[in-house]
Design a protein around this nucleic acid. Sequence first.
DNA 1: TGATGTGTTATAACGCGTTATAAATTGTAT
DNA 2: ATACAATTTATAACGCGTTATAACACATCA
Lengths: 209, 209
Amino acid sequence: MSFEDRKSETRDKIERAAERIIRSEGAARLTMRRLADEAEVALRSPYNLYGSKTGLLITLLDKVNAALFKDLGSGDHDWVLIEMIHTLDQTQKVYEADEEYHRGIFWEIMISDHPEARAAGHSNIVRIVTEMTVRAKQVGELLDGVDAIALGEQLGLSILSTMGSWAGGNLTIAQTIAHTKLVWISILQLAAAPEPAAALTKHLSVFGD
Amino acid sequence: MSFEDRKSETRDKIERAAERIIRSEGAARLTMRRLADEAEVALRSPYNLYGSKTGLLITLLDKVNAALFKDLGSGDHDWVLIEMIHTLDQTQKVYEADEEYHRGIFWEIMISDHPEARAAGHSNIVRIVTEMTVRAKQVGELLDGVDAIALGEQLGLSILSTMGSWAGGNLTIAQTIAHTKLVWISILQLAAAPEPAAALTKHLSVFGD
DNA sequence: TGATGTGTTATAACGCGTTATAAATTGTAT
DNA sequence: ATACAATTTATAACGCGTTATAACACATCA
């Protein structure tokens, strides 16, 4: 077995043990000593491979996000803006399937004192949303005066901060997506051309939580 | 000196030392041992008086909020909904005066593992915002079909989660308020009667950050 | 004055994330 | 087979929030 093989075997043992602990006892109960025991590796090994506990959790979250973003926006819609709303539904579905697992990981990363971890997730989502608003602008779904990039930043900020409240345990993912839909559609009523704006209102369930 | 006098003297020493440390070195550098040294009290004392580090920080935050909420909504406006926007400006002014101090305290409370601390701040703000939307409904500023309480919950959630992003260091307080204004006004365009809705648009600076 | 109880102090300890140190194990190259 | 390099291991330690223990100071009440 080569150096790389041994490394990825250790990685496997650690990641599987971490998932096991988080699923059975919650992310808050995942400690490095407990993890080393469960994975049957030395306390030092996760630090060698991921740098920190946060680094390990980011790895776990990236697995989920890879699965999520794989077939994002694969639907067939009349408007880019409707596709954006559909993306919210997909996101809800993925996270809802294993809500506590994702929420716990999200939260631990969010409150870690590695600010670069937060910033990475932050700019990631803003980038994805901005790509969509820019595309909407290109096909004429946004009003002439609207800055597509600034709009994307505001919509991205909205979902990001709401997911922060979800991670903190103050919301379910369903409430999170419902609120984000309300905010996105409300803002887009002011930014979108008449036709896609009208199409958006069909997705608006008014002021329930 | 009575029991109560001695207690409040210790309280004073601790709170002043805490403010001193947070202002000079940041809230992240406030440790209980450092605090006990600086305040010239035993390590145990803050725990006796505030229960936990989070309890102390909540006390510090409450001082600020008392000053803020004291003359909230004291302006003289044609519409309740405009008063709500003005409240955002007041909030920005208060927090901006000492941004890093407030941000640090906010963040430490937010990430503490005392969930009741988060929940308290959460329901506090939602209550205040909901009181305003209910008042707006009573004076006929909201459309007939609109549930004022559900609306207040959504607006409260919006500012709360955005302030979470601020606390995490991803935004300035100015950006936080600007985003909240955009969201509130956009949503209120759908929920408000024509006249106040028109008045609100004057406060909308479109899609800058 | 003396007994009681409240509050503060000093000291040690726990589990946490993380790091340092040195030894042991194992792949790679000569 | 031998030497070198990469990786994992075991052990101890650090500062953190928090708690336990026991001694001490002092207000209150008899």
